[in-house]
Design a protein around this nucleic acid. Structure first.
Lengths: 121, 121
DNA sequence: CCAATGTATCGACAGGTATCGAAGTAAGGA
DNA sequence: TCCTTACTTCGATACCTGTCGATACATTGG
């Protein structure tokens, strides 16, 4: 849980080039690829999680303290629960700095999602 | 249910230019926008639905008969249930032609999703 | 060491959802 | 008209998920 190494979304290969799955319109998804992609979409399928993710992504540097984004209309434990889900899916990473915990958008997440949607053309 | 006019995803404006929601990284999402976007992601957050969508999207013309895509490892009623959800979300449209029912990818769905992910840069 | 603040985990509960078999509807052919 | 095929709807069930209050853990400051 408190690993210091970068945790990457199973969907995303750090290798730079090709994401896990072919573009969604390029051909029939394999069951395995569908499973991975669905997990990513699932993480963003809750309005509260989407707002948290958006708040972090739109912060300068793509990172924000929990205290800066916690105002989304649900209790503090619920915010923590959603952030954990986003972290487990690999969309966010977290880092403690003193009293506060900062969440960052995982590198190349948005770019990888774009690739899945076939934007190369 | 059997409307002949094109049913469009609430998330998507047919106007061509701007989708309902600003790019996810451009700023904090409003609660209302988050709700709409989450609904779209939710529709794609199930592996079976994602495979069905992918099968249709990768078919020539972006449409396919149910009989052509029903082989995804679940019962036929379950397939129908998932297709209904995709239709209700506005990602697919359906049309009966004689014995068979054809599902099509709703126009500009993928493009609109791309816009949400901020691919302008 | 203790208090205060920020964040995470736990346990419980209500509501949602994926799945199935069975039954219903629609179209075409004998 | 009746049967067959294609698909949808219905009802039931097991599981998953979002939410909360209470509690635990972590860090800083006194």
């Amino acid at each position: 849980m408190s690993k210091s190494e970068v945790v990457e979304l199973p969907v995303l290969q750090e290798d730079g080039a090709v994401p896990c799955c072919p573009p969604i319109t390029a051909g029939e998804l394999s069951p395995a690829d569908a499973e991975k992609m669905a997990a990513m979409f699932k993480a963003l399928s809750d309005p509260v999680r989407l707002r948290l993710f958006s708040k972090i992504a739109s912060h300068p540097g793509g990172e924000a303290c929990v205290c800066d984004i916690a105002d989304v209309g649900v209790s503090q434990p619920t915010v923590s629960h959603h952030l954990k889900k986003l972290r487990e899916t690999g969309l966010l990473t977290s880092e403690r700095r003193g009293t506060w915990v900062y969440y960052q958008v995982a590198p190349s997440v948005v770019a990888a999602m774009s690739a899945l949607l076939d934007l190369r053309s």
